[in-house]
Design a protein around this nucleic acid. Structure first.
Length: 267
DNA sequence: TAGGCCATCTGGTCCT
DNA sequence: AGGACCAGATGGCCTA
Protein backbone atom coordinates (compact mmCIF):
# COMPACT_ATOMS: atom_id res chain seq x y z
CA UNK A 1 0.00 0.00 0.00
CA UNK A 2 2.75 2.33 0.99
CA UNK A 3 4.65 1.71 -2.20
CA UNK A 4 1.56 2.40 -4.26
CA UNK A 5 1.16 5.72 -2.58
CA UNK A 6 4.80 6.47 -2.97
CA UNK A 7 4.64 6.04 -6.74
CA UNK A 8 1.42 7.96 -6.93
CA UNK A 9 2.65 10.85 -4.86
CA UNK A 10 5.79 11.16 -6.93
CA UNK A 11 3.66 11.51 -9.96
CA UNK A 12 1.27 13.90 -8.30
CA UNK A 13 4.02 16.19 -7.14
CA UNK A 14 5.50 16.22 -10.61
CA UNK A 15 2.11 17.04 -12.04
CA UNK A 16 1.51 19.97 -9.73
CA UNK A 17 1.27 23.43 -11.26
CA UNK A 18 -0.01 22.00 -14.50
CA UNK A 19 -3.51 22.58 -15.70
CA UNK A 20 -6.16 20.14 -14.68
CA UNK A 21 -8.16 19.04 -17.67
CA UNK A 22 -9.19 15.52 -17.01
CA UNK A 23 -12.76 16.12 -16.04
CA UNK A 24 -14.78 18.70 -17.89
CA UNK A 25 -17.00 19.20 -14.91
CA UNK A 26 -14.12 19.97 -12.60
CA UNK A 27 -12.21 22.10 -15.04
CA UNK A 28 -15.17 24.24 -15.91
CA UNK A 29 -16.08 25.23 -12.41
CA UNK A 30 -12.88 25.17 -10.48
CA UNK A 31 -10.66 28.20 -10.27
CA UNK A 32 -8.39 26.71 -7.66
CA UNK A 33 -7.16 29.74 -5.93
CA UNK A 34 -5.52 27.91 -3.13
CA UNK A 35 -4.35 24.71 -4.60
CA UNK A 36 -2.08 23.78 -7.44
CA UNK A 37 -3.57 22.84 -10.74
CA UNK A 38 -3.22 19.30 -11.78
CA UNK A 39 -2.90 17.59 -15.10
CA UNK A 40 -4.07 14.05 -14.93
CA UNK A 41 -2.64 11.64 -17.38
CA UNK A 42 -5.04 8.75 -17.30
CA UNK A 43 -2.36 6.43 -18.60
CA UNK A 44 -0.73 6.66 -15.21
CA UNK A 45 -3.76 5.19 -13.56
CA UNK A 46 -3.88 2.26 -15.89
CA UNK A 47 -0.97 0.52 -14.18
CA UNK A 48 -0.35 -1.05 -10.80
CA UNK A 49 -2.44 1.37 -8.89
CA UNK A 50 -5.65 0.34 -10.50
CA UNK A 51 -4.74 -3.30 -10.72
CA UNK A 52 -4.32 -3.25 -7.00
CA UNK A 53 -7.49 -1.26 -6.67
CA UNK A 54 -9.40 -3.91 -8.53
CA UNK A 55 -7.83 -6.60 -6.41
CA UNK A 56 -8.66 -4.66 -3.32
CA UNK A 57 -12.23 -4.33 -4.39
CA UNK A 58 -12.51 -8.02 -5.10
CA UNK A 59 -10.99 -9.07 -1.83
CA UNK A 60 -13.18 -6.59 -0.08
CA UNK A 61 -16.27 -7.93 -1.72
CA UNK A 62 -15.28 -11.41 -0.64
CA UNK A 63 -14.89 -10.25 2.92
CA UNK A 64 -18.01 -8.19 2.79
CA UNK A 65 -20.24 -11.25 2.48
CA UNK A 66 -20.06 -11.50 6.24
CA UNK A 67 -21.45 -8.03 6.58
CA UNK A 68 -25.01 -7.32 7.41
CA UNK A 69 -25.23 -4.27 5.18
CA UNK A 70 -26.58 -5.76 2.02
CA UNK A 71 -26.50 -2.42 0.25
CA UNK A 72 -22.75 -2.28 0.45
CA UNK A 73 -22.47 -5.85 -0.72
CA UNK A 74 -24.60 -5.09 -3.70
CA UNK A 75 -22.60 -1.99 -4.42
CA UNK A 76 -19.29 -3.80 -4.27
CA UNK A 77 -20.69 -6.62 -6.37
CA UNK A 78 -21.82 -4.15 -8.94
CA UNK A 79 -18.34 -2.66 -8.95
CA UNK A 80 -16.59 -5.98 -9.35
CA UNK A 81 -18.84 -6.63 -12.28
CA UNK A 82 -17.35 -3.65 -13.98
CA UNK A 83 -14.49 -4.08 -16.36
CA UNK A 84 -11.07 -2.78 -15.48
CA UNK A 85 -11.57 0.24 -17.68
CA UNK A 86 -14.91 0.99 -16.09
CA UNK A 87 -13.32 0.74 -12.69
CA UNK A 88 -10.67 3.17 -13.76
CA UNK A 89 -13.25 5.58 -15.08
CA UNK A 90 -15.27 5.30 -11.93
CA UNK A 91 -12.25 5.87 -9.74
CA UNK A 92 -11.15 8.84 -11.81
CA UNK A 93 -14.59 10.37 -11.65
CA UNK A 94 -14.82 9.95 -7.91
CA UNK A 95 -11.34 11.34 -7.40
CA UNK A 96 -12.12 14.29 -9.60
CA UNK A 97 -15.29 15.09 -7.71
CA UNK A 98 -13.52 14.89 -4.42
CA UNK A 99 -10.75 17.12 -5.70
CA UNK A 100 -13.28 19.65 -6.89
CA UNK A 101 -15.08 19.51 -3.58
CA UNK A 102 -11.88 20.24 -1.72
CA UNK A 103 -11.02 23.06 -4.11
CA UNK A 104 -14.41 24.63 -3.50
CA UNK A 105 -13.81 24.32 0.20
CA UNK A 106 -10.44 26.02 -0.20
CA UNK A 107 -12.02 28.77 -2.27
CA UNK A 108 -14.49 29.43 0.51
CA UNK A 109 -11.58 29.44 2.95
CA UNK A 110 -9.80 32.03 0.80
CA UNK A 111 -12.96 34.12 0.77
CA UNK A 112 -12.99 33.97 4.54
CA UNK A 113 -9.34 34.97 4.71
CA UNK A 114 -10.06 38.01 2.56
CA UNK A 115 -12.49 39.46 5.05
CA UNK A 116 -10.40 38.65 8.09
CA UNK A 117 -8.64 41.49 9.90
CA UNK A 118 -5.27 40.09 9.13
CA UNK A 119 -2.38 41.75 7.37
CA UNK A 120 -2.37 40.52 3.80
CA UNK A 121 0.36 40.88 1.28
CA UNK A 122 3.02 39.10 -0.71
CA UNK A 123 5.38 38.97 2.25
CA UNK A 124 2.78 37.52 4.58
CA UNK A 125 2.13 33.85 4.58
CA UNK A 126 -1.56 33.14 4.46
CA UNK A 127 -3.35 31.89 7.52
CA UNK A 128 -3.66 28.18 7.92
CA UNK A 129 -7.14 26.73 7.73
CA UNK A 130 -7.44 26.12 11.43
CA UNK A 131 -6.10 29.59 12.21
CA UNK A 132 -8.55 31.13 9.76
CA UNK A 133 -11.47 29.42 11.44
CA UNK A 134 -10.34 30.31 14.94
CA UNK A 135 -9.67 33.90 13.95
CA UNK A 136 -13.04 34.16 12.25
CA UNK A 137 -14.72 32.96 15.39
CA UNK A 138 -12.88 35.49 17.54
CA UNK A 139 -13.61 38.22 15.03
CA UNK A 140 -17.33 37.50 15.08
CA UNK A 141 -17.33 37.47 18.85
CA UNK A 142 -15.48 40.77 18.95
CA UNK A 143 -17.89 42.37 16.50
CA UNK A 144 -20.83 41.14 18.52
CA UNK A 145 -19.32 42.55 21.66
CA UNK A 146 -18.54 45.86 19.98
CA UNK A 147 -22.07 46.09 18.72
CA UNK A 148 -23.44 45.57 22.20
CA UNK A 149 -21.06 48.19 23.54
CA UNK A 150 -22.14 50.65 20.89
CA UNK A 151 -25.80 50.03 21.57
CA UNK A 152 -25.18 50.74 25.22
CA UNK A 153 -23.31 53.93 24.44
CA UNK A 154 -25.94 55.12 22.03
CA UNK A 155 -28.57 54.48 24.65
CA UNK A 156 -26.55 56.38 27.25
CA UNK A 157 -25.88 59.29 24.92
CA UNK A 158 -29.46 59.60 23.82
CA UNK A 159 -30.67 59.28 27.38
CA UNK A 160 -28.34 62.02 28.56
CA UNK A 161 -29.16 64.11 25.54
CA UNK A 162 -32.87 63.87 26.21
CA UNK A 163 -32.29 65.02 29.77
CA UNK A 164 -30.11 67.92 28.66
CA UNK A 165 -32.57 68.86 25.99
CA UNK A 166 -35.48 69.15 28.36
CA UNK A 167 -33.39 71.01 30.92
CA UNK A 168 -31.97 73.48 28.40
CA UNK A 169 -34.92 74.18 26.16
CA UNK A 170 -34.18 77.89 26.38
CA UNK A 171 -30.57 77.60 25.15
CA UNK A 172 -29.73 78.34 21.50
CA UNK A 173 -29.50 75.18 19.38
CA UNK A 174 -25.92 75.93 18.18
CA UNK A 175 -24.48 74.85 21.52
CA UNK A 176 -25.50 71.24 20.93
CA UNK A 177 -24.01 68.96 18.31
CA UNK A 178 -26.44 67.61 15.71
CA UNK A 179 -28.13 64.54 17.05
CA UNK A 180 -26.98 62.46 14.10
CA UNK A 181 -23.32 63.07 15.01
CA UNK A 182 -23.57 62.31 18.68
CA UNK A 183 -23.38 58.55 18.58
CA UNK A 184 -20.43 58.54 16.23
CA UNK A 185 -18.54 61.12 18.21
CA UNK A 186 -18.95 59.24 21.43
CA UNK A 187 -18.41 55.83 19.95
CA UNK A 188 -15.28 56.55 17.96
CA UNK A 189 -12.78 56.58 20.86
CA UNK A 190 -14.39 53.55 22.41
CA UNK A 191 -14.28 51.63 19.19
CA UNK A 192 -10.63 52.45 18.78
CA UNK A 193 -9.96 51.40 22.34
CA UNK A 194 -11.69 48.11 21.66
CA UNK A 195 -9.67 47.67 18.54
CA UNK A 196 -6.45 48.62 20.23
CA UNK A 197 -6.74 45.81 22.74
CA UNK A 198 -6.64 43.34 19.94
CA UNK A 199 -4.16 44.89 17.65
CA UNK A 200 -0.66 43.70 18.35
CA UNK A 201 -0.36 39.95 18.49
CA UNK A 202 2.31 39.88 15.86
CA UNK A 203 4.75 41.97 17.78
CA UNK A 204 8.02 40.14 17.79
CA UNK A 205 6.92 37.78 15.08
CA UNK A 206 8.25 37.65 11.62
CA UNK A 207 5.79 39.10 9.12
CA UNK A 208 5.63 35.80 7.32
CA UNK A 209 4.66 33.92 10.44
CA UNK A 210 0.96 33.87 11.03
CA UNK A 211 -0.24 33.00 14.49
CA UNK A 212 -0.44 29.36 15.27
CA UNK A 213 -3.75 27.71 15.91
CA UNK A 214 -2.98 27.52 19.58
CA UNK A 215 -2.21 31.20 19.70
CA UNK A 216 -5.61 31.93 18.26
CA UNK A 217 -7.34 29.94 20.97
CA UNK A 218 -10.24 31.44 22.79
CA UNK A 219 -11.43 31.42 26.40
CA UNK A 220 -14.14 29.17 27.67
CA UNK A 221 -16.46 32.16 28.16
CA UNK A 222 -15.46 34.38 25.32
CA UNK A 223 -18.04 37.12 25.43
CA UNK A 224 -17.57 38.41 28.96
CA UNK A 225 -13.81 38.20 28.78
CA UNK A 226 -13.49 39.34 25.24
CA UNK A 227 -12.48 42.88 25.97
CA UNK A 228 -10.00 41.99 28.68
CA UNK A 229 -8.37 39.20 26.78
CA UNK A 230 -6.66 40.21 23.56
CA UNK A 231 -8.16 38.63 20.53
CA UNK A 232 -4.83 37.94 18.95
CA UNK A 233 -5.88 39.51 15.72
CA UNK A 234 -2.94 39.76 13.47
CA UNK A 235 -2.98 43.37 12.43
CA UNK A 236 0.50 44.81 12.31
CA UNK A 237 -0.74 48.34 13.00
CA UNK A 238 -0.74 50.16 16.30
CA UNK A 239 -3.94 51.96 17.15
CA UNK A 240 -3.95 55.42 18.66
CA UNK A 241 -7.17 57.09 19.78
CA UNK A 242 -8.19 59.80 17.39
CA UNK A 243 -5.59 58.93 14.78
CA UNK A 244 -6.55 57.60 11.38
CA UNK A 245 -5.50 54.02 10.96
CA UNK A 246 -4.91 51.97 7.82
CA UNK A 247 -5.58 48.60 9.34
CA UNK A 248 -8.28 46.40 7.95
CA UNK A 249 -10.31 46.65 11.12
CA UNK A 250 -10.65 50.40 10.74
CA UNK A 251 -11.40 50.25 7.04
CA UNK A 252 -14.70 49.44 5.42
CA UNK A 253 -15.03 45.85 4.40
CA UNK A 254 -13.39 45.20 1.07
CA UNK A 255 -15.40 44.67 -2.05
CA UNK A 256 -14.44 41.03 -1.89
CA UNK A 257 -17.01 40.61 0.85
CA UNK A 258 -19.61 40.57 -1.86
CA UNK A 259 -17.79 37.82 -3.64
CA UNK A 260 -17.85 35.77 -0.50
CA UNK A 261 -21.60 36.17 -0.27
CA UNK A 262 -22.03 35.18 -3.86
CA UNK A 263 -19.79 32.21 -3.26
CA UNK A 264 -21.87 31.02 -0.37
CA UNK A 265 -25.01 31.31 -2.44
CA UNK A 266 -23.44 29.43 -5.29
CA UNK A 267 -25.33 26.22 -4.79
C1' DT B 1 15.49 17.00 11.31
C1' DA B 2 11.02 17.05 13.52
C1' DG B 3 6.68 18.98 13.20
C1' DG B 4 3.00 21.61 10.95
C1' DC B 5 0.29 22.17 7.03
C1' DC B 6 -1.36 20.74 2.84
C1' DA B 7 -3.27 18.08 -1.42
C1' DT B 8 -4.72 13.91 -2.87
C1' DC B 9 -6.53 9.20 -2.89
C1' DT B 10 -9.52 6.02 -0.90
C1' DG B 11 -13.39 3.46 1.24
C1' DG B 12 -17.36 3.92 4.12
C1' DT B 13 -21.65 6.15 5.07
C1' DC B 14 -25.48 9.11 4.32
C1' DC B 15 -28.68 11.52 1.41
C1' DT B 16 -31.57 12.49 -2.63
C1' DA C 1 -27.84 4.38 -8.12
C1' DG C 2 -25.13 8.17 -7.93
C1' DG C 3 -23.30 11.95 -5.60
C1' DA C 4 -21.87 14.37 -1.33
C1' DC C 5 -19.59 14.16 2.82
C1' DC C 6 -16.24 12.44 5.95
C1' DA C 7 -12.09 10.61 8.02
C1' DG C 8 -7.82 7.99 7.59
C1' DA C 9 -3.54 7.34 5.17
C1' DT C 10 0.26 9.06 2.70
C1' DG C 11 3.96 11.88 0.97
C1' DG C 12 5.65 16.63 -0.26
C1' DC C 13 6.96 21.17 1.13
C1' DC C 14 8.40 24.49 4.38
C1' DT C 15 10.08 26.42 8.71
C1' DA C 16 12.18 26.63 13.28
Amino acid sequence: MRTEYSEKQKWISSAKNLHFEMDSDASSTCSRSSSPDLAVDSSFFSNKMFQSYGETLQSKSEKSTSRSQSGIIEKNRARTDLSKDDLQDLRLKVNSRERKRMHDLNQAMDGLREVMPYAQGPSVRKLSKISTLLLARNYILMLSSSLEEMKKLVGDVYGANAQNHSARRALPPTSVAPASQLPLLSIAPTLHTLVATSATPNVGQAPHSPPSAGFLGFPAHPLPTLLKDPLHLSSSYRHFPGMPCPCSLCQPLPASTASLHSLSMGK
